[in-house]
Nucleic acid binder design. Structure first.
Lengths: 288, 288
DNA sequence: TTATAATCATAGAAATTATCTATCGATAAA
DNA sequence: TTTATCGATAGATAATTTCTATGATTATAA
């Protein structure tokens, strides 16, 4: 029962007049008669009773009428929702992120711009984000670059620097900046080694042939900061996260001379810019 | 968006594999690819993301999937319900009727629609029809309303008015209409009192405190009309029957000012709509 | 009644659309 | 690298829809 036939049927149901219905549909009357006849054969029941006098719906016609309306409406809804999708009024976007702090502000702005798009942000290590993208469990990632995979595309966002967070009572708390060498004997609370921020610290130290002293490894910035407040040890944070710390129990001091830097960038599947939602998000973050 | 395309879409959604879906549908793979492509163009959005590895639904595809299922289901229901009507291909319907003229046209149309159904129409007084329904000797009645019985259901059809039939040679024959008062001294041929048309006449006269002059009581319209032709007296007929009179020996004149009216309606056992034959007949008469 | 107009059905031709086969290019597996 | 799998493309064929012209039946008006 093709959709076209249902439209024809509805037109005749409304007009109860084949010639007028055909005009309304923009087809010829014999075509309409023929097509309705086909529909009647397909259903094995007459839909209209025709006499010279009048055209009326049979019982089968009345049954079909209700269902036809619901079918047409369902299709209308589908079209509408899909249009909303390409108009960015609806949709889902799954983001993997090496630290939510990297994009909170941009996220808020994006949500205000497109309130109909449902955002899911998962805090993940860089490799997990990559795997998520490759297995279509994520749409975009905000991670530390470089990251190589032939199926993914990259867009740099900004350079991330590192800061030391340390208890206000510590002697370093008043320094205006800290050299990496000064971290050597400081007890440190760090990310586990699979995290790229940790690898960034480790490689900076390896270059300078410095041996760090990690006393604890925690996988969230918040818990690390808590340890710093309790003076368990110093913590090395991305600068962008350090900015958001308001506690007066910890001091935030830039690492400098040389400052270890890491590029933060966007990752997404190479073909995924065809999705208007993903490309809108990428554009938004770049201009932010 | 043709129904066929939705079926194709659903097949691909299930298999997530064009070649297998095409086999399942009994069409070739290029055809399926092409038709899905058409659907995607029609909707203005890709429905599947294809890579050599795998075929997966896009967001637009997911939206369409839900609607497509509902559409297919709705069409399945329509077919099913219409098939259940096939019981209408044979059967019997016993109709009681206060005058066959009330439904001749509708009866002809119904018979053309369902030629396998054997129709038995019995001309009866309203109470006889009611008793017939209650004793399951009739399936439906077409009678004058109101009629009260808890076990029966009612559907109004139209209002019946009355006309006077009188010999063309009578002085009233040229009037355009007749008041009830003018009937007072006219010799009249009427139904016996158990008939509702008669009761209708009597009660209209009672209200106006008029005394009629019935010279004869006959139980069929035809015999009454014959008496009118022979100028035995005037006859009061339902207007719908008056229309069918073609004799030039009698004049048909509307009763007016006030015109006694009576509602004509359908009566049937409250549960009898479960029979598809009876419900088809009821629906047919109402839409006629 | 008879003529006229309106309405739906039918037939055959034309146009459109779906489908097929054969083949290509890209991707994944061996 | 080679092979196998999978979807896309092109051109030919088949099926289906649509059209015009016309017929049959019924309602309306003279």
């Amino acid at each position: 029962m093709e959709h076209r036939l249902l439209e024809y049927f509805l037109a005749v149901s409304e007009e109860l007049h084949f010639t007028r219905a055909a005009e309304k549909l923009g087809i010829s009357q014999p075509t309409l008669s023929h097509q309705i006849r086909l529909l009647e054969h397909e259903l094995g029941a007459p839909l209209f009773y025709r006499s010279g006098k009048k055209t009326i719906l049979t019982q089968a016609g009345q049954i079909l009428l209700g269902h036809a309306h619901r079918v047409i409406n369902e299709i209308k809804l589908a079209r509408q929702e899909i249009n909303e999708l390409s108009g960015l009024q609806r949709g889902k976007l799954r983001i993997g992120c090496s630290g939510n702090h990297l994009l909170t502000d941009a996220l808020v702005a994006f949500h205000r711009l497109y309130p109909g798009i449902e955002l899911t942000v998962t805090e993940l290590a860089t490799e997990e984000t990559r795997d998520g993208l490759l297995h279509n469990q994520l749409d975009v990632g905000v991670v530390f670059l470089p990251l190589f995979d032939e199926q993914l595309a990259y867009r740099p966002l900004y350079d991330e620097e590192l800061v030391l967070a340390i208890s206000s009572s510590h002697e370093y708390a008043t320094c205006s900046n800290i050299k990496i060498q000064q971290l050597a004997n400081l007890p440190l609370v760090l990310f586990p080694q699979k995290f790229l921020v940790r690898q960034m610290i480790d490689s900076a130290c390896a270059e300078l042939e410095i041996q760090l002293n990690p006393v604890m490894e925690l996988s969230t910035l918040e818990s690390q900061l808590h340890m710093a407040e309790q003076n368990v040890g110093g913590t090395i944070l991305p600068k962008s996260y350090g900015k958001t710390v308001v506690s007066d129990k910890v001091a935030i001091i830039p690492l400098a001379d040389p400052a270890p830097r890491k590029k933060v960038g966007l990752v997404y599947g190479k073909e995924s810019l065809e999705s208007s939602i993903i490309s809108a998000f990428v554009d938004h973050l770049i201009s932010f």
